[in-house]
Design a protein around this nucleic acid. Structure first.
Lengths: 319, 319
DNA sequence: TCAAAAGTGTTATCCTTACACCCATGT
DNA sequence: ACATGGGTGTAAGGATAACACTTTTGA
């Protein structure tokens, strides 16, 4: 049997903060897709280099921080056309871009568009309280699905579906863990609550209960879920948040950016203290006359912290 | 220009505890290498499936826990023969294997050998105190290297070499961070303290100062460093330690396994308490008449914890 | 009897969490 | 005046870290 042709793809989740909500850059066009390109070791010395170039070519954006996420290689992740199509193993990357500059820089989006990431994951945004979607549709459907063992056939290793649902959606003791984005996505996919499950042929229009949210091509929404989870985790021990901030900012700006990523409110007074005595920021001396309120002191990232401590993160508490 | 042929490789870091020290499985033979195989999407539905089969075929071991680490794709990571050799992008995996069974099962190592992981990283084992190697050779050589800016040419993004050394080797305020295994490896590689740097042609025998330790082929030791770092990090929020333990064990056994992975001693009394009131284990009722000492109660992993909490880890303290 | 490991109890300290309250500005 | 966000103080609670001490076995 002849071997299949292999191809290494690169996928980029490029995050920027727009209007106090995280957004991703997408290639312009009909369907929602992540910027994608082939990795050619002839042109690029490293995959990260290839990724950076691809992002700039496709979106006009030069990302600052770039990090490899995961490599997606399952057969059938791109179920197209004839069998002769090459098998694509895709390496997902997370890239952070400073977008919310004060300088009113018109972003030249060569060939890209922006989309708020909670359009794809409305159940992940708890900033205005627990999303009604959860109790109205998602959780009932999940429980109904888990109650029919016949449908639950794909889960081999690990926990039973009901326990998974309980853990990932925080059913008891109200413990919603903001890092379990991927687990929640996968449960919903398995239960046929996402349009991708219909496209993939795992469900039909009839026996699925699609939750309103934007789907993406192939497994791109899965890659996005991985990116959100990784970013939420990373912020707790690395100061990558500043890759998304302008040069100077108020503590409230910073708080709102953090809240937008975690998708939940944090305690104002304690947040300020935690940030300040973590020595992550320093005052610039200037202050900003804000919209309705006392002027706020402006701060900048104290980048020297990187030379001082190995894991300076944002210890954010609840509420 | 014709495109290069691509190939997806799978590399496995298979960890088992042997004689209270973590060891990895290697393919038998002259040089030290990780089990390696090609990923063929025709045969295997997922990469993890391919990895599991490859591990079993090459070592006779069926790993329990398997996790993807990182994908290594830099050009020149396998600098061999003519230019027509295919470019290999390699996906590294971490696999944990229950090896230290009481049942005296003779492990049939089909085609593999075992090697303690601190043979490759002697400076990472602090169980008997701070390794003399560090102050005698490693740190002096690193500082000497960093003092010559002419040699320091490859680091583009990020911190200056001296700060990197200070952070990753915990020079001031005695803060050795046990998770920075990869950072330390990379600093030593960059400074020409590892045999790999000579093989790769970055240094000659003369201007290098090789630190005694076992080298591996290609970038395999780098993959191993990634695995150690990941495992040390993971243990803090996931109970994967039990994938390395026999069915029942004493708390001291558990402590020694934890210590062997972190490469440092932990505080005995507090460790017991932390483990017990994290509800990670339950007594079996039986006890073990130990070697010279009071018999210890035997425990087993309370696997129900997985159904109860999202991130049950080992909160181990210092010392 | 002594060494070695098991196991318990207690306290000081730090960090998180929560609550209360005052300050400065625009409308 | 009052709404809005900026900013400070402090006390309760919980978790960690450190220390002291008793118990049970084998040699």
């Amino acid at each position: 049997m002849p071997e299949q042709i292999m191809e290494i793809g690169l996928n980029a989740v490029i995050v920027a903060i727009v209007d106090n909500t995280p957004a991703i850059l997408q290639t312009a066009g009909e369907n929602d897709a992540l910027p994608y390109g082939k990795f050619d070791p002839g042109t690029h010395r490293t995959m990260e280099e290839g990724l950076r170039e691809l992002v700039e070519a496709q979106t006009g954006i030069r990302p600052g921080y770039v990090e490899q996420l995961y490599t997606f290689g399952d057969r059938g992740r791109m179920p197209v056309a004839g069998d002769k199509s090459p098998h694509v193993v895709s390496v997902g990357y997370l890239a952070l871009s400073r977008f919310n500059t004060d300088q009113n820089t018109e972003i030249k989006l060569t060939n890209a568009k922006l989309r708020a990431w909670y359009d794809f994951f409305p159940w992940e945004d708890w900033r205005k309280g627990r999303p009604a979607l959860l109790d109205e549709t998602i959780i009932p459907h999940l429980l109904e699905w888990a109650a029919h063992p016949a449908r639950v056939n794909r889960i081999i290793r690990g926990l039973d579906p009901l326990s998974r649902i309980r853990i990932s959606f925080g059913l008891e003791e109200s413990s919603w863990d903001d890092e379990l984005v991927l687990e929640r996505y996968e449960m919903m996919y398995a239960a046929g609550l996402l349009a991708e499950a219909v496209v993939d042929g795992r469900f039909t229009q009839e026996n699925s209960n699609i939750i309103p949210s934007i789907a993406m091509v192939h497994d791109h929404r899965r890659i996005l879920a991985t990116a959100i989870a990784r970013l939420r985790g990373k912020l707790k021990y690395r100061p990558v948040i500043f890759e998304l901030m302008p040069e100077t900012f108020t503590l409230f700006d910073l708080q709102q950016t953090v809240e937008s990523i975690f998708g939940r409110a944090v305690h104002k007074q304690n947040f300020r203290r935690l940030v300040e005595n973590a020595a992550l920021v320093e005052p610039t001396g200037a202050s900003q006359r804000s919209t309705g309120g006392r002027p706020a002191a402006l701060f900048r990232f104290r980048s020297r912290i990187l030379k001082e401590r190995p894991a300076p993160g944002l210890k954010i508490g609840r509420r």
